[in-house]
């Protein structure tokens, strides 16, 4: 099959970008989208033109490195699928596809389709963890965790940190990403002691990183390759509200219930 690609080319963070059109000829429907780009890049190098930079690593839909917009949809048209797992059989011969990087103030472009998602790491640094230094843990079966809770926590923990939710959101909000981590840890007994501080600190970090606010548009869940739902955003809001009543780390006395 043949495809026509309109690709965003931008030399570096400071340069101005533009679209350039390339033809992908005689590609196989069994190829993955990134394998198709590999072929285009090999041809470009053959013609002494600079290959298209795009981020990728595992090519199994789990590392979260890959991701760009295909015709305005983050990770392309197939639901629940990262661009590395998208195969050309999803498209029709002769299709015209526009490839663009994630667009968000918090994700500056580094080159072509590659952006800087360091803001996500900083949100985690603010509280996306359980403080459990090595060596101090009790036996793994000492605390029972109901299967439903763990399954739900897992649904949230499945986030791969790719940034598609931000790219799809008209406000470029990182709410789904943050809510997924808040929910994962908040649903487990081990995550309770830090629950209030966690949600407050992570939301504050999100605001500092210049992500937009959440207005419940739901575009994020439509593109999430792990199909994480906005029900977790409701959970985050609930936790945030609860935390605001509780104040910072209430001192515990023998008399308190």
């Amino acid at each position: 099959m043949n495809l026509t690609l309109r690709v965003w080319r931008q030399k570096n963070a400071h340069a101005r970008g533009r679209f350039v059109t390339y033809e992908a000829r005689n590609v196989s429907p069994d190829m993955s989208f990134l394998e198709m780009l590999d072929v285009v890049n090999e041809e470009l190098i053959g013609r002494e033109q600079e290959p298209i930079a795009f981020e990728h690593d595992c090519r199994e839909g789990i590392c979260g490195a890959c991701g760009f917009m295909i015709n305005g949809i983050a990770h392309g048209p197939k639901r629940g699928t990262t661009v590395c797992q998208l195969h050309l059989r999803t498209f029709r011969d002769g299709d015209h596809l526009t490839l663009e990087p994630w667009r968000a103030k918090a994700f500056p472009v580094i080159k072509d389709l590659v952006v800087d998602r360091g803001a996500f790491d900083r949100i985690i640094q603010a509280g996306g963890f359980i403080s459990a230094p090595a060596g101090a843990a009790p036996d793994a079966n000492a605390i029972l965790v109901p299967k439903e809770d763990v399954e739900l926590a897992f649904d949230a923990a499945a986030c791969i940190g790719c940034g598609a939710c931000v790219a799809a959101c008209p406000n470029a909000s990182a709410m789904l990403f943050t809510a997924a981590k808040v929910s994962h840890l908040g649903l487990l007994p081990q995550g309770q002691p830090e629950r209030n501080d966690r949600v407050r600190n992570m939301v504050a970090a999100m605001d500092r990183e210049m992500f937009g606010g959440c207005t419940n548009m739901g575009e994020c869940q439509a593109v999430c390759p792990k199909e994480i739902t906005i029900a977790f955003i409701a959970r985050l809001n609930h936790d945030l509200l609860a935390a605001s009543f509780k104040g910072r780390k209430p001192p515990r006395t023998a008399a308190s219930p």
Partner: peptide, 15 residues
């Protein structure tokens, strides 16, 4: 110790 450590960190192992 590893399993204990990971559970304490919130790793959602199957139950």
């Amino acid at each position: 110790n590893i399993i204990d450590q990971c559970v304490a960190q919130g790793v959602p192992f199957a139950r």
